[in-house]
Lab assay of single mutants.
Amino acid sequence: MKVMIRKTATGHSAYVAKKDLEELIVEMENPALWGGKVTLANGWQLELPAMAADTPLPITVEARKL
């Protein structure tokens, strides 16, 4: 699914347009965010693609819901 990742004042957030859902990312498998699992505030887990740590945000990526 397409997910937009952006930086907020409190960390990172994910927006899933198909579900009209925006949630804070509360847990990251990798400190650089990319190439691992993230957990959203509502409990969803997404697998993000591997990208460079300095990838500019906001960005829309293809993520997989676990």
Rank of each mutant, 00 (worst) to 15 (best):
E22Y: 11
K65G: 09
G11P: 00
R6W: 08
G43L: 02
L46A: 00
A32W: 15
N30W: 08
A50C: 11
D54S: 09
Y15V: 10
P56Y: 07
G11F: 04
A63P: 04
L66H: 07
T8W: 06
E47R: 09
M28V: 09
L57S: 01
D20H: 12
P58N: 02
I25P: 00
A50N: 12
A9G: 13
R64K: 13
A17R: 08
T8Y: 08
K37S: 10
K2C: 15
K37C: 10
L66G: 04
A53T: 10
T55P: 06
S13L: 12
A17C: 15
K19I: 15
L57E: 02
A53S: 11
M4R: 11
V61N: 01
V38L: 02
E22C: 13
A50G: 07
L66Q: 06
M28L: 07
L33T: 03
Q45R: 11
D20Q: 12
A17V: 15
T39S: 07
A17F: 15
I59E: 02
K19P: 10
E47Q: 13
T39Y: 07
I25F: 02
G36M: 04
T10C: 14
A53F: 11
L46S: 01
E27N: 10
A63E: 03
A50D: 12
S13F: 14
L24P: 13
M28I: 08
G43W: 03
E62L: 14
W34A: 02
K2M: 14
G43I: 03
K37W: 15
V16K: 01
N30Q: 10
E29H: 04
T8G: 07
P56M: 11
V26N: 03
Q45C: 12
T60D: 06
T60M: 11
L24F: 09
E23Q: 12
L48C: 00
L57N: 03
W34I: 04
K65Y: 15
P31H: 09
L40Y: 01
I5Q: 00
A17P: 14
M1I: 14
L24M: 13
E47P: 00
L46H: 05
A17L: 15
E22M: 09
M1N: 05
M1H: 06
A53M: 10
I5Y: 01
E23V: 15
T8V: 11
L66D: 05
A9Q: 11
A41K: 08
G11T: 03
T55V: 08
G11A: 06
R64V: 13
T10D: 13
K19E: 15
A14C: 11
G36V: 06
K19W: 15
G35H: 03
S13E: 07
A14T: 04
A53G: 09
E62C: 15
L24G: 08
Y15C: 08
G43Q: 02
K65R: 14
G35F: 05
T39P: 01
M28T: 10
I59F: 09
V16G: 01
V26F: 04
L33E: 03
M28Y: 12
E23K: 04
N30T: 09
V26K: 03
P49Q: 03
K37I: 14
K19R: 13
V16Q: 03
V3D: 01
L21M: 13
I25C: 01
Y15P: 01
M4P: 01
R6I: 10
A63F: 06
P58C: 06
H12A: 05
L48T: 01
L57D: 03
M51K: 06
W44F: 05
V16F: 15
A32V: 10
R6H: 08
L21C: 14
H12E: 03
I25M: 01
K18Q: 14
L57Q: 01
R64L: 12
S13P: 02
M1Q: 05
E23R: 06
A17H: 14
I25E: 00
R6L: 11
N30R: 09
V61E: 01
M1G: 03
E29Y: 06
M1C: 15
L21V: 13
T10I: 12
T10V: 12
E22S: 09
L40Q: 00
L24D: 14
A63Y: 05
V3M: 03
S13M: 13
A53D: 12
I5K: 00
E22P: 04
L46V: 06
K37E: 06
A41G: 09
E62I: 15
G43V: 01
A53H: 11
A9F: 09
R64E: 07
R6A: 10
P49N: 01
L24C: 12
T10S: 13
L21T: 11
H12G: 02
M28A: 13
L48S: 00
W34C: 03
D20M: 10
P56W: 07
P56N: 08
P58S: 02
W34K: 01
V38T: 01
K37P: 05
G35N: 06
A52D: 13
A50V: 12
K19Y: 15
E47F: 12
A17D: 10
P31G: 12
D20P: 04
T60E: 14
H12T: 08
M4K: 08
T39L: 10
L33S: 04
D54T: 09
T10P: 03
G43R: 02
G36Y: 05
L57R: 02
G36K: 03
T39G: 03
P31V: 09
P56K: 12
E22Q: 08
R64N: 09
M51N: 04
A41D: 01
T39W: 11
L33D: 03
E27V: 09
D54Y: 06
I59Q: 10
E29C: 06
N42L: 04
E29M: 06
V61Q: 01
D54V: 05
T55Q: 07
G36A: 07
A50S: 11
P31W: 08
A32N: 15
N30A: 07
P49R: 04
A52E: 10
E47S: 10
A32T: 14
A53N: 11
P58F: 06
K18Y: 15
E47K: 09
T55F: 03
M28W: 14
R6E: 03
L33P: 03
K18W: 14
N30D: 07
T39H: 04
K18V: 14
G35A: 05
W34S: 03
K19A: 15
D20R: 11
V16H: 04
T55L: 05
D20I: 07
A41H: 06
M4A: 08
A32H: 14
D54K: 06
E47C: 14
I59C: 11
K2E: 13
G35T: 03
A32M: 14
P31M: 08
L46R: 00
K19D: 15
E29Q: 09
K7E: 08
E23M: 14
L66C: 09
L46Q: 01
H12F: 15
E23T: 13
E62K: 10
A32D: 15
A41Y: 05
N30C: 12
E23I: 15
G43K: 01
M28R: 10
W44A: 03
R6D: 06
R6Y: 11
I25Q: 00
N42Q: 01
M4H: 08
M1E: 08
K18T: 15
L48K: 00
P31E: 13
E62P: 07
L33F: 07
E29K: 04
L57P: 01
M51R: 04
D54M: 07
D20F: 12
K7P: 06
W44M: 09
A50K: 12
L21E: 07
A52K: 10
K18E: 15
A32E: 14
V3K: 01
K18C: 15
L24T: 11
A50Y: 13
A17K: 10
N42R: 00
E62S: 11
M28N: 08
M1W: 13
M51C: 05
V38I: 14
Y15M: 09
K19H: 15
L33G: 06
I59H: 07
V26R: 05
V16D: 09
G11K: 02
T10Q: 13
M4Q: 14
Y15A: 07
L66M: 11
P49M: 05
E47L: 14
P56L: 10
R64T: 13
V38S: 01
V26M: 07
Q45P: 00
Y15D: 03
Q45G: 03
D20V: 07
T8Q: 07
I25Y: 01
A53K: 10
E27P: 01
T55G: 04
V38A: 00
V16M: 13
V61P: 01
K65F: 15
Y15T: 11
R64C: 10
D20T: 07
A41E: 08
E27Q: 12
R6F: 13
G35K: 04
V38N: 00
A9V: 10
E22F: 10
K7G: 06
P56S: 09
E27F: 14
T55M: 06
L48V: 02
G43F: 05
L33Y: 03
R64D: 05
L46W: 01
P49K: 02
M4E: 15
K7S: 08
T8D: 07
P31K: 12
T60P: 02
R64M: 11
I25D: 00
A17E: 14
H12K: 05
I59D: 03
A63G: 06
G36N: 03
K19S: 15
P58R: 04
L57I: 06
P56R: 09
N30Y: 11
V38F: 04
L33C: 07
L33W: 05
M28D: 00
I59T: 07
V16I: 15
V16S: 06
G11R: 03
K18N: 14
G36C: 03
T10M: 13
T39A: 04
T60R: 04
W44L: 07
E27D: 12
